[in-house]
């Protein structure tokens, strides 16, 4: 068991290393001198030369890479000249809206997706299954920014139930934050529930034909108990996996929604960094997002190891 987790840890570290490698070398593909890019249009030749030295940009690229890796491994993601602060700080300042948005979105997605998937599997082939599967398919193919715009029009502009955009004044009470998060979280919840519906349906169908489900029925248990206790309990692993994965991908994947709703989150930070070509911020954000993904994966593995009796012993 510990061996398996150890192997997993190693392969996740390799993934992190490769992400860092990709991020570093792809950034170097960008046309233009990185130092000039960092300083912007008004920079003089001396400024640029000085910055090249400070950042070691005059050294061979492999040396730069190793130095950069060292910095990252020690938690230093660089400095943003545009924002005039360390990248890690810029990201930390933006983490809260992103965190709550991801949390609420995945909660909504799971609360909608899991029951819908169960219903769909239990009555497979029936009208209710066709409706649920059809809606899931629809949800998966709606662009979230468009749904966001429509929701803003309907529920914020016309009905006035929610604020149109933003995250409230600094230091606003949490209820106000909630009001700001409600619409974007609903949009992302709907869009992301599709995959959860599909996975729940598929993994439940998979176990519903297992022998122990027949045994459970032969005991005279109600169908609800057979499905919810016996089948669902065994279908949980893939379902939890897809929920965790959804959560992980929402941390950096809510870019468009954050932009539509003007939420000052990490996605928003990335978009403005891209438009300003603020590469240290882009790089840092990619590293952090990948790290969160890797950590959530590791956490899921640990939970399985602790929860599944077959693995535990």
């Amino acid at each position: 068991m510990w061996l398996k987790l150890g192997q997993r840890l190693v392969s996740l570290m390799i993934v992190m290393f490769l992400v860092a490698t990709m991020v570093f070398f792809l950034t170097r593909l960008a046309p233009g001198d990185p130092a000039a890019l960092m300083l912007g249009d008004q920079a003089t030749a001396e400024d640029i030369a000085q910055l090249r030295q400070v950042y070691g940009l005059d050294k061979p690229i492999l040396v730069q890479f190793v130095l950069w890796l060292k910095e990252i491994a020690s938690g230093n993601l660089g400095h943003s000249i545009f924002l005039q602060r360390p990248v890690i700080q810029a990201i930390a300042e933006r983490a809260e809206p992103t965190f709550f948005l991801a949390l609420f979105s995945v909660t909504i997605a799971a609360l909608v997706g899991i029951p819908a998937g169960i219903v769909s599997a239990v009555w497979r082939g029936r009208p209710v299954d066709q409706i649920v599967s059809g809606l899931a398919m629809l949800a998966a193919n709606i662009p979230s920014f468009w749904l966001g715009l429509i929701f803003i029009q309907l529920f914020a502009v016309r009905l006035g139930w929610f604020p149109v955009a933003g995250y409230g004044e600094p230091g606003a009470p949490f209820v106000e934050r909630l009001a700001h998060l409600a619409l974007p979280a609903t949009v992302l919840g709907i869009v992301n529930s599709a995959l959860i519906v599909r996975f729940t349906r598929a993994s439940l169908l998979d176990v519903l034909s297992d022998d122990y489900v027949r045994t459970a029925r032969s005991k005279g248990l109600s169908e609800a108990r057979v499905v919810l206790r016996h089948a669902f309990g065994n279908a949980l692993v893939p379902i939890v996996t897809v929920v965790a994965l959804t959560a992980a991908l929402l941390v950096g994947g809510a870019i468009v929604t954050e932009t539509v709703f003007g939420l000052p989150g990490i996605g928003n930070l990335v978009v403005s960094a891209v438009l300003r070509r603020d590469y240290p911020v882009i790089q840092g954000a990619l590293i952090v997002v990948a790290a969160v993904y890797v950590l959530i994966n590791l956490l899921t593995d640990i939970i399985y190891t602790l929860a599944d009796p077959r693995v535990r012993y």
């Binding site: 993934v15 490769l18 991020v23 792809l26 593909l29 960008a30 468009v256 990619l286 990948a290």
Partner: peptide, 24 residues
């Protein structure tokens, strides 16, 4: 496959916007 894993550790849209930013 490790490279595949690494690329899939980043959300599609984030990776895409990064690449466009780099490429123009």
């Amino acid at each position: 496959m490790r490279f595949v894993d690494a690329m899939m550790a980043l959300p599609d849209i984030l990776l895409a916007i990064f690449l466009v930013a780099v490429l123009g």
